[in-house]
Design a protein around this nucleic acid. Structure first.
Lengths: 346, 346
DNA sequence: TTGTATGCGTTATCAT
DNA sequence: ATGATAACGCATACAA
């Protein structure tokens, strides 16, 4: 019954026995406690090495109440916008040696289920919530569970939130179009990611309206449509707008993917871009660059990094001196490329 | 000291006390054990509900030796190919009520570190490895740790592997080009994802060479380049090929992203596609569809789903009747769009 | 059918 | 500086 043949993972006990010390000492070595004599430390380290021992993280979490991993909850993580944000998150999280658990919330039910269970399950040390708006009751539960939370591209007064100035971004885009002489401007909005209260799409609509108002243009009901955030949604909306008796000379879409749909619709309907139709998207994904699409650039990777950083700060600050929630606003900037030009003369 | 004010998460003990039963009974209810009287089950369920109790997953894992989550290790999860595969993975994993932990292995060191630690740490029940080739020593460690593993877009004889027929995919593409009359065909290969032995890029090169040989065409050294998998890599290689004295009339790229780089290079050099230059990519990402790029379509989402399914099967089969490793091959299919045409006459 | 007791691998709190 | 031991919250074998 020699333990060479047994391939069960070695425990801290095995290391202790092997090194001729007590488990407590091994634990101290593992956790870099200063109060251990260099000689014994070496003995322990040697034992760890020869046994190829790694601590069982589950057991460690059991007593330490920390898991070393953070949860990221996001709708549709494959969409380029989220993908970019996640990249920033990943960089920051792996930088500090943590793991990251991805929760994909495609539906409201899924999202609710996560919001309900995650604080209790304690499988993650903190939660980064992207583009999803928890309601007050949910936030109360988060708070009472003392689960560190940061919102990215979403806002709640009681939680640290990272938002971009969507209204201003939209304003910049539409104002630019009015400056180019456009008077009939369509807006394709995205459907809210969740049922809850606010939504970044509202802000973009609001920026659109303000820019129109500032240019003395009346809104036309048929020129404001709400559709899915993807290419197909954009195409559907564009077809509807562009087949009206008096079609718009410019379209502002709430996402680059929708803008691509507009591109497709225009090609289908034989409408030249930018000569007959100007187009601006929103997000600034790589695809926009490839297609030379004018867009409102969000600092996506930065949002992910900063959000993760703020979350880690909260996780690592002992709960008695938890910093108060803050609201951080980032700017979006208009990038003009080859899908915008002066309004066609009528 | 009433427990209304204490907001510490309720434990199974609290539920037991509340329901007037023993912890064992609560545990049985939680685990759907059949041997519990309906009446008591109801009482327990009620207590669970009023206390808003969720089991502590960490503690549960401690005894059950299962974590309920699976690890997915992938290089560059933001690249569209991986993103698509991951989507399939996510669907399957959340279907069976598990969580998924993402390990992003951007470098060989990171990858090695994961390969070394993950089997020991026991934080995941199984590991899905995407486009990465573990070496024999690593595989031996996996096996002896009894950690269920499935390889996707990678192969090892001792592990269940899911591969697509890269050689055939490449052959189809290049054969099609030769049929169109092309004789000078360039190949832009991708750099290996990891140092290890085989690599799908080798297979694609081999398919390229076979198709050339079958058409009686000699290889030209300057027409086979290896570059990064992304757009910039593709562009660099294309510029190099297209500025040669005798430039190719067709290019086959090992990824769609590289093909986009070729598109950019051609535009820059004023070379018309497809009239002066035919182009075929590889992968079949959405971008290829948008740009009407001919490509070799991989069943990416299916790969993710199937890989995850196979992994879950292995996780859930008790270790005594573990199915033997299998090698599953999926087909890639040529999709011709608007970047290919007959060779220009000289 | 239900209750009780032990152990999972660690950390942390005592002693020594 | 180090050793012994009690938690941590749950599952489970065994007892009742």
């Amino acid at each position: 019954m020699n333990d060479q043949e047994q391939s069960k993972a070695p425990t801290i006990q095995d290391v202790a026995r092997r090194a001729g010390v007590a488990v407590g000492t091994v634990s101290r070595v593992l956790n870099e406690s200063p109060k251990v004599k260099p000689v014994t430390r070496q003995r322990v380290l040697a034992a760890i090495h020869t046994l190829d021992y790694s601590p069982n993280l589950i057991a460690r979490s059991m007593t330490s109440r920390r898991t070393g991993s953070v949860g990221v909850i996001v709708p549709f993580f494959t969409r380029p916008f989220f993908s970019e944000v996640l990249q920033g998150v990943e960089v920051m999280i792996s930088n500090v040696g943590r793991e990251f658990v991805l929760y994909n919330a495609q539906s409201n039910e899924q999202c609710d289920a996560y919001f309900r269970k995650l604080p209790r399950q304690r499988r993650v040390d903190g939660l980064l919530i992207i583009s999803l708006f928890p309601d007050d009751a949910t936030v109360t539960r988060f708070l009472s569970a003392k689960l560190p939370i940061v919102l990215v591209d979403a806002y709640h007064p009681q939680l640290t939130s990272l938002v971009v100035n969507n209204e201003d971004g939209a304003y910049q885009a539409v104002h630019y179009l009015t400056e180019l002489g456009h008077r009939r401007i369509g807006f394709i909005n995205g459907v809210p990611e969740s049922d809850f209260r606010f939504n970044s799409s509202d802000d973009r609509l609001s920026g659109f309206c303000h820019a129109l108002a500032d240019a003395g243009i009346d809104q036309e009901p048929g020129l404001i449509l709400t559709e899915e955030w993807d290419r197909h949604g954009g195409r559907r909306a564009a077809i509807q707008m562009l087949t009206r008796p008096e079609r718009p000379t410019a379209i502002f879409a709430a996402s680059d993917l929708q803008a691509v749909g507009v591109l497709e619709a225009a090609r289908m309907l034989n409408i030249a871009i930018p000569n007959e139709l100007s187009l601006i998207g929103f997000d600034g994904i790589e695809l926009a660059e490839i297609l030379e699409l004018s867009t409102v650039q969000q600092p996506m990777k930065r949002m992910g990094e900063l959000g993760a950083q703020k979350l880690i700060e909260r996780i690592e600050s002992s709960s008695n001196n938890m910093p108060p929630p803050e609201r951080i606003q980032l700017q979006a900037t208009l990038v003009t490329r080859h899908t915008t030009s002066v309004a066609p003369r009528r």
